[in-house]
Structure formats: C-alpha cells, structure tokens
Computed example of a mutant assay.
Amino acid sequence: MIIQLVVWPDDRACDRSWLMDQVPGASGIIVMLSDTHTAFSLYSHKAAGPNLRVISTMSVGYEHIDLSAISQRGVKLGYTPDVLTDAVADLSLMLALMVGRNGAETMSLVRNGEWPNSPWSPFGFCGPQLSASPVSPTRTMGFIGFGRIAQATLKRLIPLGVTHCIYYANPSSPPKPSLDAELMTKYGLNSVKRVDLDELAKDSDVVFVLAPGGEQTKHLVNADFLGKMKKTAVLVNTSRGTLVDSEALATALHQGVIWGAGLDVVEGEPQVTADHPLVKEPRCVILPHIGSATLETRLGMATLAAKNLLGGIFEEAMPAELNLKSRT
C-alpha cells in the first residue's frame, strides 16, 4: 500500500482552512490538543469522507475530540499517554519549589531593577520549605488523582524527606490498599492513605492536582476546598485548568487563605492576559501549559502519534488506542 502524506509545514497549529482543504478523502488524521475546531466540522459533518479510519491526537487529553461522533462512524482514536509522565512530574516539583520560595515575585524584582532597593532582612522573601526540617519534620503531600504522573511526582519528593502521602481518587474506583502498602514500604513513608477532599485540603502541605478533566472533576478545587487548606499550603495544578476555580483561587491568594499556587494550566487558556486576576497575584506562578515541553517528550509523543495512525490505517494493533465503547 502506498501512503500519501500531507504535512502542515510550520511548528504551530495548522490553519483551519488548510485542514478543511486537505482532509477530504483522508484515511487517517493527526491532530493536536489545540485543534478544538475539528470536533464538530470534521467528525459530525463527515468532512473527511467514508475513508477515515483513525484519528491520532498528539496529546494525553481528548476533550477536543467528539468521541460520540467518531465512535458512531467506527473511527478509531489513538492518543499519547505515559510518554509525558516524567516531564510533567518534573514540572510539578519545579512549580512547588518556585511557589514556596517566592520564585515569581523575586525574579520580577531582579528583572525590574529593584534588587538594590530591597535590603536584606531576617525574614525577607521567606516561604514554606518543601523539604522536611528540624522545624517541620513532618511533610504531607496531597494528590487529587493518583495515577502514573502523581506517583512519579511522589517519587521525586521522597529525597526531600516527605513523610506522609494522602490522595483523593474517583469515588467510583475501588480502593487499592496493596498499592498503598507497596508505596509506603518502597519509599519509607509513614503512611500512604486514600482520603476524602476535606481531609486532603486540611492536612496537605502541598496539593498536586493531577486528575483528568471533564464535567465530573470541574472545580474540585473551589472556595470551600481552598478555605480548608493551611495558610502555608501550596497548590500545584499541572493537569487541566477546569479542575480549579480560578476566581476562587485568586480570591484565596489575595486574602492570604493559602500561601501560593503554581499553575501550568488555567481555565479558559490561552486567554490568560496581564489583567487576569491570577496573573496579578505575586505568589501565583503561571506557565503556558508546558508540562510536556521537553525535546525528548515531544519526540516521543510525535512518534507514538505516528505509530497509532499507521496501526489504525493498516488495521493493526495501535500502541495506545482509546476504548471508545467505554467512553460514549
């Protein structure tokens, strides 16, 4: 079989008009997380035609895909889980450190030329230490979602002297006491425990948000949750912006309800401009969704997306195919 490749030449999301011109007759399509316009026009209106066998997205998330429409047409969907686990875990740890050590505020001080006017003081620019210390020997890390990325993040925290791990999981998923015991023994932790959201908020020194997006998890972190957190606690979100109520978080930061927040994702992104209430908060570190942005990870994602596409076209096993029957 001869494969004809049609490739968008630029390192950015393709123009909608270009895609609509090229897609008719295609057997497979590779799309990006940013291609939200394709869900309705391509799949519901059958712009690709009857030859379409597979859609491969270069992303872990698939909220941009009309799952019902492609399932009805018998089109397979490939995605790229696992490849970005280490990169996102690295970034989660980086954000926790940056927030606790006032990274955003102090970096802007230097960039704005204000360092000479900021004399040293005993508690100047101090923040809550992530690692355990004689002053704070007990450190509890909390996770909303406890999948591969959360566990990889926990692994990176162990050398810092973390003593307790608590996590919130989907209520419909069965408990895994054997996993908890295994991780506790493996990492020498005092405890690994599944808890409800209230306990997670109250007891965590850092809360890492690492759960899937969607209506079921929308605004899990809201004003009520934030109000239960410690004043020295840090919130880190490297999953989906919709899990955190941005307005509630901005209010909590402004009023000193929690210490700070590190966000790689924000609800409504990329429409996050200088006048956004979270951007105005000095103890909020915001990155433009770069969790998977390492050369190694993006190459791995692109390779997996290509292999998924070829598997779907040739009706062979796809390395990472989403089970659409369980999702629609």
Rank of each mutant, 00 (worst) to 15 (best):
S27L: 14
G28N: 15
I29Y: 01
I29C: 01
I30L: 10
V31Y: 00
M32K: 08
L33C: 06
L33V: 08
S34E: 06
D35L: 09
H37C: 06
T38I: 09
T38H: 11
F40C: 06
S41P: 09
S41K: 11
L42G: 12
L42M: 07
L42S: 07
S44V: 05
S44W: 01
H45T: 03
H45P: 01
H45D: 09
K46I: 13
A47Q: 05
A47K: 09
A47S: 06
A48I: 04
P50T: 09
P50D: 15
N51W: 13
N51T: 14
N51F: 12
L52P: 11
L52Y: 05
L52C: 06
R53W: 12
V54M: 05
V54N: 03
V54A: 05
I55C: 07
I55G: 03
S56C: 07
T57D: 08
T57I: 05
S59D: 02
S59N: 04
S59H: 12
S59P: 04
V60W: 04
G61C: 04
G61K: 15
G61D: 00
G61Q: 07
G61H: 03
H64W: 08
H64S: 01
H64F: 08
I65G: 03
I65R: 02
I65Q: 01
D66R: 12
D66S: 07
D66Q: 12
L67G: 03
L67A: 07
L67E: 06
S68F: 07
I70D: 00
S71A: 13
S71N: 15
Q72T: 08
R73N: 12
V75E: 02
V75K: 02
K76A: 11
G78D: 14
G78H: 04
G78Y: 04
G78C: 12
Y79D: 13
Y79A: 15
T80M: 08
T80S: 04
P81Y: 08
D82G: 00
V83N: 06
V83L: 04
L84E: 01
L84S: 13
T85N: 03
T85D: 00
D86I: 01
A87R: 05
A87M: 02
A87F: 03
A87W: 00
V88S: 01
V88Q: 00
A89G: 07
A89L: 04
L91Y: 09
L91G: 05
L91H: 10
S92I: 00
M94A: 13
M94R: 09
M94I: 04
L95R: 14
L95Y: 10
L95Q: 11
L97N: 05
L97V: 13
M98S: 11
M98Q: 02
V99D: 00
G103V: 03
A104K: 00
E105D: 13
E105M: 15
T106R: 01
T106Q: 01
M107G: 08
S108R: 15
S108C: 12
S108F: 15
S108Q: 13
L109E: 03
N112I: 06
N112G: 08
N112S: 10
E114Y: 14
P116F: 11
P116C: 14
N117L: 11
S118P: 07
S118A: 13
W120A: 14
S121F: 13
P122G: 08
P122I: 05
G124N: 05
